[in-house]
């Protein structure tokens, strides 16, 4: 059992949960993930580590409430326990000095990109962070990011002082109006990462994405998370989660991510019917 040290509604629909896990916190590096199982009936799902605090002995994750597992997590309170918490998993993000790095985060990935941006800055890079959301109200952690990068750019659908544009257009415009970055890293929903990949491909900028396909064990045992990268099959849990964005077979990734949609809806209905007092 793992204790929830803090659970908050971060912005509408996005929750932040800090879990007591001193051994994982000691070892976690930027870009790694944990596997969570809320209760004995629960699924095992991966979540990107947004913060690891070895002194406090805690790991923080941020997630969107979309299905049964995230619904269960959201219904817990500070001081409650979750059944299982395993990590740190996956290959850590490659941190090296390359020059100028554009770190892009959206949704849960704003949390996910934060430790990567910080590490890239500490490695001597010029770091520009771009965070995106449908609305200003969906952005968070600007303070943490501002302290760990050279420039913070926000992209939202309701930006009144700029005009509405997609993240890809914004990147395109940003890059054309500024110096060309040496590396782009994106963490967030598949849709956003794919848009970033398309925007940077023609510009010839090396781009890394953090993939989060469906997983079961998360340790390389089941092969559920297989993705095609550069024409070969990779297991995102042990070969990734970092991959070259321009080599990823995006259509396949998207198709595999929605393969349990009908089951997810069935499960969610069951969860909501039996837990209507909590949700």
């Amino acid at each position: 059992m793992f204790k929830i040290l803090l659970k908050e509604n971060l912005v509408p629909n996005l929750q932040v949960v800090k879990i007591e896990a001193p051994e994982i916190a000691k070892k976690a590096l930027p870009g790694q993930f944990v596997i969570i199982r809320v209760d004995e009936y629960g699924e095992r799902i991966p979540m990107t580590i947004a913060e690891a605090d070895p002194e406090e002995g805690s790991i923080t994750v941020i997630f969107m409430e979309v299905g049964t597992t995230t619904g269960k997590m959201a219904s817990l309170k500070t001081g409650d326990y979750i059944e299982n918490f395993t990590g740190p998993l996956g290959v850590p993000a490659e941190i090296e000095k390359v020059g100028t790095v554009l770190c892009i985060g959206g949704c849960y990935g704003i949390g996910g990109i934060t430790p990567i941006a910080r590490a890239m800055k500490e490695a001597g890079n010029k770091v520009i962070s771009i965070i995106e959301g449908r609305s200003k109200r969906l952005l968070y952690w600007q303070d943490k990011l501002e302290g760990s990068c050279d420039e913070l750019v926000t992209v939202t659908g309701d930006d009144s002082d700029s005009y509405q544009e997609w993240i890809s257009e914004k990147i395109d415009r940003y890059i054309k109006g500024n110096e060309k970055p040496d590396l782009v890293i994106a963490v967030g929903c598949t849709f956003m990462m794919r848009n970033v990949a398309e925007a940077t491909k023609d510009l010839g900028i090396k781009t890394i994405v953090h993939l989060s396909p469906i997983m079961v064990d998360g340790t390389g045992m089941c092969g559920c998370c297989r993705v095609e990268v550069g024409g070969t099959t990779k297991f995102a849990c042990v070969d990734g989660p970092e991959f070259d964005a321009h080599e990823v077979e995006w259509d396949l990734l998207v198709a595999r991510q929605v393969q349990y949609l009908a089951e997810e809806i069935e499960s969610l209905q069951m969860f909501e019917c039996t837990n209507w007092t909590k949700v």
Partner: peptide, 10 residues
Amino acid sequence: MFPEYDTPVK
């Protein structure tokens, strides 16, 4: 035992 248990299988 899905959906009593949360993990599905096709």
